[in-house]
Nucleic acid binder design. Structure first.
Length: 420
DNA sequence: TCTGGGGTCCTAGGACCC
DNA sequence: TCTGGGGTCCTAGGACCC
């Protein structure tokens, strides 16, 4: 059996933990630059606020119903996520963190009343962290996902749902929209509709050959999983990332090369920081920038430039230099750049890379020491304390008008409790 | 005025090899 | 009429996830 533990309305729930007066009230959390609603409490969903709705389009609803609005506070959500995972580990030695708000658990070898177990895990998460968590248990990951969704739909399940008997599964799948199945995406739904497939059960009744032909391997796996045959691997070993992307939309369009260089230098620095944390080297970086696609009638451009590091590097200066050179190469006067970013790819583990004969090892030694010194200083005094001049003040611009405190990750923001 | 950010996997087709 | 046959590797793009 597999469990899926899914935090309900995660970002909104994190904010509520420290603002309990917001329980029962509509809450939304916004994307970067306070652009779109990316998390909504049940009350906010009930008001018709859609996932990804731009703030300026829902302003009236927000005002009328006194919706609590928060800018994204990822330091807080990351820390709360870690706390939930800690609780889950009490219930299974194998926990696979699937996303910031979801984790699979392998229950192989555990013999118990799984329905009670699911409810117990949920209750413990809530008691230990304040986050409501839906726990679904079923014979495959895809079915466990569905079971956890049932918990959200039916409060009487008390956060836990165990689903295993074929007749029960059939009953659930017959009422479950195929569009809500894990692995069935937006592009596939219309295709399925023309075939008369509306529910998850309809999908399981398609002939195997048709599924393989029309929906390829991923669709076939989903088909098997829905039929109770596990075939999506359980993986509790946290692999290194294969690519790292740092990108942002700008509050104001950027029209000068210098300003764009400064932002992109900061993206590159953030990316190399993440790269060094996972002890990898990078062979290639792409730098891109484009104009505002929503702005009709103004000139549009979408540029990207590749930089190669044939020997592999994790050197701060190498990335920042390459990023700035790439920016200068692609920048064109007369455009208002709205979004830019860097993607570093072809990452290899440092342990697997031996030195190249073409590199001046003395040079290499110097830059390695410089990079390490930067890491050491910045880990003590904060990211960006030691930085390159081209980075400006070292801050990636963004507007976050509704930012909550870093309750759990900054000394000065830790809540105080007074007892009368 | 205002529209997110960061990932993974799979596949088809091209380039290249003998 | 008639164009070998069998591989590997790489890449771009698509689809999916949160």
């Amino acid at each position: 059996m597999y469990a899926l533990a899914d935090c309900n309305n995660f970002f909104a729930s994190c904010e509520r933990v420290f603002r309990p007066e917001l329980n029962g009230k509509p809450v939304i959390v916004l994307s970067n630059n306070d652009g779109c609603a990316v998390a909504r409490s049940n009350e906010a969903k009930a008001l018709g606020i859609k996932m990804g709705a731009p703030l300026f389009q829902i302003k009236d609803i927000v005002k009328k119903h006194d919706v609590a609005v928060f800018s994204g506070n990822f330091a807080l959500y990351g820390d709360m996520s870690r706390r939930v995972q800690e609780v889950l580990r009490r219930y299974s030695p194998s926990v696979e963190q699937y996303s910031i708000d979801e984790a699979f658990m392998d229950l192989n070898g555990i013999e118990t009343d799984f329905d009670a177990y699911a409810k117990k895990i949920s209750a413990d998460c809530y008691r230990s962290t304040g986050i409501p968590v839906s726990v679904g248990i079923a014979p495959t990951k895809t079915l466990a996902k569905i079971a956890s969704k049932l918990c959200k739909q039916y409060p009487k399940l008390k956060g836990g749902c165990y689903m295993w008997r074929p007749q029960d599964i059939e009953k659930v799948l017959r009422r479950f929209p195929v569009a809500d199945v894990w692995g069935i995406g937006r592009r596939t739904v219309p295709k399925l509709a023309t075939m008369g497939v509306k529910t998850a059960w309809d999908y399981t009744q398609l002939p195997e050959a048709a599924v393989r032909k029309l929906f390829a391997l991923p669709g076939f796996r989903t088909w098997k999983e829905l039929r109770g045959e596990p075939c999506i691997e359980f993986d509790d070993i946290l692999e290194d990332r294969q690519s790292i992307c740092v990108s942002r939309s700008f509050t104001k369009e950027i029209t000068s090369a210098d300003a764009l260089c400064e932002q992109i230098a900061n993206f590159a620095e953030t990316a190399v920081h993440k790269l060094r944390q996972q002890h990898s080297l990078c062979l290639e970086m792409a730098v891109f920038a484009f104009t505002n696609r929503f702005k009709e009638g103004s000139p549009q451009t979408h540029a990207s430039v590749l930089a190669a590091f044939p020997d592999g590097t994790d050197d701060h200066m190498a990335f920042v230099t390459a990023a700035v050179n790439a920016t200068r190469e692609m920048f064109q006067d007369g455009y208002g750049y709205k979004k830019a970013g860097v993607v570093i790819t072809k990452l290899i583990s440092k342990a697997h890379m031996s030195g190249s004969v073409f590199v001046d090892t003395k040079e290499e030694e110097r830059s390695r020491k410089l990079s390490s010194a930067m890491d050491a200083v910045n880990s003590v005094y904060g990211d960006g304390t030691l930085r390159f001049g081209i980075q400006g003040d070292g801050v990636i611009w963004s507007s976050r008008e509704y930012q909550s405190p870093h309750y759990t990750t900054k000394w000065e923001d830790i809540p105080t409790v007074s007892v009368k």
